[in-house]
Design a binder for these strands. Sequence first.
DNA 1: TCGCAGTTCCAACAAAAGTTAAGGACGGTG
DNA 2: CACCGTCCTTAACTTTTGTTGGAACTGCGA
Lengths: 243, 243
Amino acid sequence: MPSDAIRAALIKRLRISSAIADEDIAEIEALPISVRHFPAEQPVVRDGERATNCCLIADGFCARSKTIANGKRQILSIHIPGEIPDLMSLFLHVMDHDLATLTPSTLGFISHETLQRLHRRRPVVAEMFWRDTLIDSAMFREWIVNVGQRPAPARLAHVMIELRERLRIIGRLDGNNFEMPLTQEQIGEALGITAVHANRVIKQLRQEGIVDLHRGRVTVLDERKFLELADFDNRYLHQSPTL
Amino acid sequence: MPSDAIRAALIKRLRISSAIADEDIAEIEALPISVRHFPAEQPVVRDGERATNCCLIADGFCARSKTIANGKRQILSIHIPGEIPDLMSLFLHVMDHDLATLTPSTLGFISHETLQRLHRRRPVVAEMFWRDTLIDSAMFREWIVNVGQRPAPARLAHVMIELRERLRIIGRLDGNNFEMPLTQEQIGEALGITAVHANRVIKQLRQEGIVDLHRGRVTVLDERKFLELADFDNRYLHQSPTL
DNA sequence: TCGCAGTTCCAACAAAAGTTAAGGACGGTG
DNA sequence: CACCGTCCTTAACTTTTGTTGGAACTGCGA
């Protein structure tokens, strides 16, 4: 994958959430990025590590998670191309969670130093990245609500619709069909339920003709029921740069 | 409360998490702040509102929350003096959650404009505030883990210890006794359980001689058991400015 | 002082989710 | 093609949590 295409995904996404000037785009296009390929299920940065780079997803799916003392794991977020899941490491140098690939991925690494220099040169870019980390934070808030208050079927539907909404932005939807490459074990970890229960829930939604999940692909069967179940309000994604 | 004392709490807290120069402190001390008093259980900013100020807690406890379609409420975080719970509104202008007082509170409002100007003048201060929002985000991640993976008694213990840790920083601990002014209803909303179950859990921890909660005051009965139950690792609070 | 409203507390029952265990489907590989 | 490992699927049973409804306690104001 050419380095240009990698930057394109980032810029496309940033344009959605922030107003951005052409000079600033030029600056981002000039950033030195070192590209590496990762197989599926591979750690990128680990909890406790000291990060010196940020990682831009050029291709593939990644997830952030934390593992507690009893060995249970909680998935915190799912990430798609164009996102920088560990932007926070710029100021929180010691990682407080894991970042790992879900599928084989192409990642672009940008050194903290490079980003710091860019920020000093272009405060507007810094503000844009700051806003990006704030949207990340808003997504965590919604994730708390999902895990804390919604019944399991609604949790699943909500995560699916959030992912669909974000895939739409980067043009990765085909009809009522989109990728969600998690095993049922991982879905359980994302929703705060066991894999067995995740299976029950998936089966139920399939039988009720709401949505089907098969081999990492989501197929919406009844859009109305799906939306109603998920109780989804996209405001928390803060996609409008003017607001 | 004199305006100086208000700023002091903020500066004390910022010094813990960031290295900060004396000139920058002078700038913060010079910020125009307008002070208002709020009764208990009063909304400060509401979900959907457009914010033009950030709010510094000078005295009292506040909480952030989201309410979903079925009326259930999830508490996202508890805030104490010296914190700026809605700093995120600087770049996410339309609120995606509520901020309200828990107890009667004294709040200092700083306009977004003032903060923006300060950031342009002193990029280092901007970075410090950015870091502050990132720590906020880290706390949300841990809250997700708490609600998603820990059994109810451990959830309660974890929230208690997080609060204690933060109260310690601002010098608000008296021995093994500290304030946590939430009703059992609110504790339920924070932990993602019902008030009835919250009551069961509190009772259980009391009977097991681990911790007692009475009228908004926490008394630790057995520190060892308490720590073990909570599974608390303070790394996510990022209290060391050098890391 | 009384009564009111908001808590706290509790019991009985119902529902949701966890645990354990095991069979079946599927993709990859020798 | 047969084998292997991973994931999916299901059933039976246990535990945790939710629901409903009501009693006791507490602080506050009429």
